[in-house]
């Protein structure tokens, strides 16, 4: 058993719904995106190509971050194949950040989410976030999704790294990661990639697919299917009325 994700580049529309869903689900601080993107522009006008590659922790089987971590704070979960992080063991050495070839780990240089508690108003006559919370009778931090806290601190401490967990708290409830549920085009599929009969494995078998920087031997668990080929979406030279679908 080992979770994995496939992202079909032909279906991804680059809307960043995954990024926003992740941010809301996991309370990531300002300036951090556990789920993010790489964009690449290549070619020469008029044959220009733009690629949007959604990124996150690849939960590598051969994870350099886990090998580099001196305290086992970054570890592989044997039952699920996930690369997880224990903030209690993290000493903030940042070796994992340097070791990860994908740039998906962020460091809390300061206590995150400290600004909501301030009473400063953005403009005169506006509520400050704290006043808004008090006015509405809410409790705690407005950033906190309490369900996130079942497996990882809702707000990660200063001096600790953080990264995507494939929404392990949702997996425990039988739900898919938030980014998968949020994707409007069904580009993201999630499941047991170690089981050859699972949907994700079948998609990989059908389309082929590869992980990012596979040549490094990290054995990523996020697999990208099909390069995006724009002509298949919209080809201005095809006769009017012909199917322009994927």
């Amino acid at each position: 058993m080992g979770y994995g994700m496939v992202i079909d580049q032909q279906l991804c529309v680059g809307c960043a719904a995954c990024t926003i869903a992740c941010k809301i689900e996991n309370n990531t601080p300002v300036g951090f995106n556990w789920c993010d993107k790489i964009t690449r522009t290549s070619g020469k006008f008029p044959n220009v190509r733009y690629e949007y590659i959604s990124t996150m922790c690849n939960h590598c089987d051969n994870a350099p971050c886990v090998a580099a971590c001196p305290t086992q704070a970054m570890y592989k979960d044997a039952g699920t194949g996930l690369t997880l992080h224990d903030t209690n063991k993290c000493i903030g050495c940042k070796a994992c950040i340097v070791a990860c070839p994908y740039g998906v780990i962020s460091f809390n240089w300061q206590r995150p989410h400290q600004h909501w508690a301030q009473r400063d108003q953005l403009a005169e006559g506006c509520f400050s976030p704290r006043e808004m919370l008090e006015e509405s009778g809410g409790e705690g931090s407005p950033h906190g999704n309490p369900e996130r806290g079942t497996t990882y601190p809702v707000v990660r401490p200063a001096g600790s790294v953080e990264k995507c967990t494939f929404c392990d708290h949702r997996l425990l409830e039988g739900l898919a990661p938030a980014c998968v549920d949020a994707c409007p085009s069904g580009a993201r599929q999630f499941g047991d990639i170690d089981d050859p009969n699972s949907e994700v494995s079948r998609l990989v078998a059908k389309h082929g697919g590869k992980g990012l920087r596979e040549e490094l031997g990290t054995r990523p668990r996020v697999i990208y299917l099909r390069d995006y080929t724009p002509q298949r979406r919209f080809d201005p030279f095809r006769p009017a009325g012909e199917d322009q679908g994927a």
Partner: peptide, 9 residues
């Protein structure tokens, strides 16, 4: 909390 595969350790 040792990790012998880590050069930092």
């Amino acid at each position: 909390s040792p990790n012998p595969s880590s050069p930092i350790w």
